[in-house]
Structure formats: structure tokens, C-alpha cells
């Protein structure tokens, strides 16, 4: 967040100085105008970025010629900020769902152009596999030796509620093009973005060679619905939420029981495991159905008054 504030501030400073160096005659007016236009257009395409870099090189040359111009000297220290910068916060689920959630929520709510990539392993991987609020129900983790009782927190849904955040849930192994597209869209979006990326992990307890196969199963079970929530679609009268994965074709347990984090409870406490798995199966289906319903809403015609107040609260 601090990085974004600095980058934006420097960009403003550079634009301010750009006007001054045109006034002083140090820099060619047409070049400055092109630079200003490109800076404001803020085109995320690589070709546009490289073209702007070329212009900034010229600008630096022109500024560098004027040995004693204070404005030129100042501009040289910030000229590179006229080229688009991409600010990313990267972290795991322990950070995003738990310890850093307050800060993350604040950044996403700020409207600033910060991109967030959550590498979601559903467990604290770095400290050796402790439960986080991303850990699914029925999984065994450290600090949850008896199996996690509560369902997984839906971080994406929480962020979507703001309405102004680009949110995507991706799993490279299940749909690679959707993942690549989500990265590009997130970065191009003018506001904050959040990508939640399914990340298989050594702590899940299976041979990681088949990690991407597991991702497919996580998606096929409904546990990890793929979607992109793009606020820009609202302007076109469309539902901003696009569901990118199909309805569940397998039970959650069929996916989960490939992994020791679920299997081990079945071995140590079969009855508890069966009970929790029943709930976890339901969690996965419910999660998918909720997304399906949200993605099916007709937008652009939202009118209040559609839902009846419940009889008890009617005045």
C-alpha cells in the first residue's frame, strides 16, 4: 500500500515537473504532450509500456542537456514513474485470512490500484502446517489435530461484497487459460484486485507430482469454484460475476481422500471423520451453488423491493 502511495505521488510530481520543463523550454512540447497522454491513458499492454519507456529515454536526454535547470534535475529523479508500475501484495492464506486480514481488507476497500495475490494452501505452510481460517472443514492440521470443525472462510465472497474490487479464484491445473486471463484482467483493472490461487502443498500429504491433478479434483468437487468478478462488467449492464467452472461432478470426499490431511482423521477417528466429511461434502456443494446463483443474477435491472420482509419483522 505504501508503495502504491509513493508511486502515485511520484507520478503526480513528475507530471507537475513535466509542465514546468516545457515552460522553461528545456523539453520539447510535443514530446511532453505525448508522454502526458500516455501516462494518463495508463495502457497495461506491454507494447504501450515499452513505447512510453522510449519516450522517457528521450525526455531524460533532453533534461540531461540542461545542466543547471533545477526542474530538470528534479524531473530526472522521478521521470521513470511516468511509466506504468504494477504493485503487488503477495502472501499466503495465514496472512490473507488471519493475521493480515484487517490490513488486507483496508487496502482492498481503499480503492487504490493494488493487486493482491493470495497463494492459498489452506494451511500455514511456512511454519509447518497449522490451521488457518482457509483450512477446509474435516482437514487435519497442526493446531487442529482433531480435524477442523468450522467451514472454510470465503475470502473472495467477502471481497466481492464491496462491488468495486476485481476478484478471481483460480487453479492453474484446472483451467490454465482462466488463470492467465485473471492475472491480466486483475492488473489491467483500475481499482484494487484480489486473486486467490489454489496452491497444492507438501503439507496436504500426497505426491506433488500429481499436484495439478488434485487441483482439477478440487474444482470438480465444487470445493474450489473458478470465477472472475469484474466490476467493469456492471457498466455494460452485465453481472460482474462470471463462473468459470462446471457444476460438481465428484463428491468432495473423492477429492479429499487422496490427501493425508483428510485421510489421517479417517484412520485415527473414523466416526468423527465420517461426520465431518458429510458436512464438508455439503460445504462444497453449497459453495458452488451459491456462486452459481450469484452468477445467475440478472444485473442492470436491480430494483429494491423484490424480497418480502419476513413475517416476524413486518411492522
Amino acid at each position: 500500500m505504501g508503495m502504491r502511495l509513493t508511486v502515485d505521488q511520484f507520478r503526480q510530481t513528475a507530471l507537475f515537473l513535466l509542465d514546468k520543463v516545457v515552460e522553461t523550454g528545456c523539453v520539447d512540447k510535443a514530446l511532453a504532450a505525448e508522454i502526458r497522454a500516455a501516462t494518463l491513458a495508463d495502457d497495461p499492454e506491454q507494447v504501450a509500456i515499452e513505447a512510453q519507456r522510449g519516450r522517457i529515454e528521450q525526455l531524460k536526454k533532453q533534461c540531461g542537456k540542461q545542466g543547471d535547470c533545477a526542474d530538470c534535475k528534479q524531473l530526472l529523479t522521478v521521470a521513470d514513474y511516468l511509466v506504468r508500475k504494477s504493485v503487488w501484495a503477495v502472501g499466503g492464506d495465514g496472512w490473507a485470512y488471519d493475521i493480515g486480514y484487517g490490513g488486507l481488507d483496508h487496502v482492498l476497500a481503499s480503492g487504490k490500484k493494488v493487486n493482491v495475490l493470495v497463494l492459498d494452501t489452506e494451511v500455514y505452510s511456512n511454519t509447518g502446517g497449522q490451521m488457518s481460517k482457509s483450512t477446509p472443514r474435516a482437514a487435519v492440521a497442526k493446531f487442529a489435530a482433531a480435524g477442523k470443525q468450522a467451514p472454510k472462510k470465503d475470502l473472495g465472497l467477502l471481497a466481492m461484497v464491496y462491488g468495486s474490487i476485481y476478484v478471481a479464484k483460480v487453479a492453474m491445473g484446472a483451467n490454465a487459460s482462466q488463470a492467465v486471463k485473471a492475472f491480466a484482467e486483475a492488473e489491467a483493472y483500475t481499482g484494487p484486485s484480489l486473486i486467490i490461487a489454489y496452491s497444492h502443498c507438501i503439507n496436504h500429504g500426497f505426491n506433488l507430482t500429481t499436484g495439478y491433478e488434485e487441483q482439477k479434483k478440487a474444482v470438480a468437487s465444487g470445493h474450489w469454484p473458478l470465477y472472475r468478478f469484474d466490476p467493469r462488467l456492471k457498466e455494460q449492464g452485465k453481472n460482474p460475476l462470471q463462473l468459470d467452472s462446471k457444476p460438481p461432478t465428484i463428491e468432495f470426499s473423492e477429492y479429499a481422500y487422496n490427501e493425508d490431511r483428510y485421510k489421517s482423521l479417517k484412520q485415527s477417528k473414523p466416526e468423527v471423520a465420517a461426520e465431518l466429511m458429510k458436512l464438508a461434502n455439503r460445504d462444497a456443494v453449497e459453495r458452488y451453488v451459491l456462486m452459481e446463483q450469484l452468477a445467475g443474477l440478472k444485473c442492470g435491472q436491480c430494483q429494491p423491493g423484490a424480497a418480502e420482509p419476513s413475517p416476524e419483522t413486518k411492522e
Binding site: R4, V87, A89, G91, G92, W95, L119, T121, N126, A184
Partner: peptide
């Protein structure tokens, strides 16, 4: 996709 222009603030963890 964005490395040539990326700032990365990385929360403590595996990454």
C-alpha cells in the same frame, strides 16, 4: 506478465 514494472510486497510465509 508484469515483472518489468512490478513492486512486490511479500507477507512473511513460504513465499
Amino acid at each position: 506478465l508484469f515483472g518489468d514494472r512490478a513492486y512486490i510486497g511479500n507477507a512473511t510465509g513460504c513465499s
